[in-house]
Amino acid sequence: MATPRKTRVAVLISGRGSNMVALIEAAKDPTYPAEIVLVLSNRPDAAGLARAAEAGIPARAIDHTTFTDRASFDSVLDAELRAADIDLVCLAGFMRIFTPSFVAGWAGRMLNIHPSLLPLFKGTRTHKQALDAGVRLHGCTVHFVVPELDAGPIVAQAAIPVRQGDDPDSLADRVIVQERRLYPAVLALVASGRARLEDGRVVIAESAPDGALLSL
């Protein structure tokens, strides 16, 4: 019997690529349903590019500062992804806002991880936002990307308690641990078809290990 084709994944980064590394490590398992075949960054100095190359994955930069507008950058990025026969795009600290046409072209095939329990605390400085709001739970969310920032259908979340004496750095340190667990688990669900979009919402197969996706 022929081995099923694995989902071909591109990871987009702007910095160190810590979540990218978690995805790469997970994909080393022969039973994992996705393979990381390309890493792209909008910043030539992104440390994650070297980390991807060390793992033997094609990695290159498309410097957004050399483009006159957002649409031109998105067009080149789209061409790179399609030339590599990418099935699914994972944003991992990719600090660019896409044009609506780019998002439409990858609708249902692009995931993002955000360091808050969406719909709370969209945008940046989420850990400070959480502390300022006085919430008792904080965490991270993996969602499908839509044109509105940090607003797509949620696949899964992981939560941590906010402790007395926490500051943005201590919260960030604990949330990133959950991010590195959650993102590979969600990618496996989506790549295997156990998590899918139906009428703008995510449906997860009953056999999926949902208990492993939420940590209090």
Rank of each mutant, 00 (worst) to 15 (best):
A26K: 06
V190E: 01
T124L: 15
A52H: 07
D210F: 14
P44M: 14
S192D: 05
L187A: 06
L81R: 12
P168S: 11
F98C: 01
I160N: 01
M20E: 13
T124F: 13
G105S: 15
P209A: 14
M1I: 12
G15E: 07
P58K: 01
A191P: 05
A151N: 11
A55M: 02
S14G: 11
A130F: 06
A27R: 00
E206N: 11
R51Y: 06
G48Y: 06
F67D: 10
V190P: 11
A71T: 12
M1V: 15
R180C: 12
N42M: 02
A55Y: 02
T31E: 11
A50I: 01
P4H: 06
L216M: 12
W106A: 06
R194Q: 15
S170D: 04
V177I: 15
V37R: 15
G105Y: 04
S72W: 05
E198F: 00
T141P: 02
F121H: 01
M95Y: 15
G48M: 12
V162E: 09
L149Y: 08
L214I: 15
V155H: 13
R136S: 10
A130R: 02
G17R: 09
S207H: 04
G17E: 02
A205R: 05
L182V: 07
V142L: 02
P100E: 12
N112A: 11
T31P: 04
E179G: 03
G56W: 07
A50M: 00
L187V: 15
T126V: 15
E148R: 10
A188Q: 07
D87R: 12
P58R: 10
K6N: 11
R181C: 11
A107E: 14
R201C: 02
S72N: 13
G108D: 01
R43F: 05
E148Q: 02
A172Q: 10
R201Y: 05
T68P: 10
R82Y: 07
V202S: 00
D45L: 01
E80D: 10
V135R: 01
I160Q: 03
A83M: 08
V145N: 03
S72V: 04
Y183S: 05
A185V: 03
A107V: 00
N112W: 06
D150L: 07
A156C: 00
F144H: 04
K28S: 12
L187D: 03
R194F: 00
I86W: 01
V9P: 08
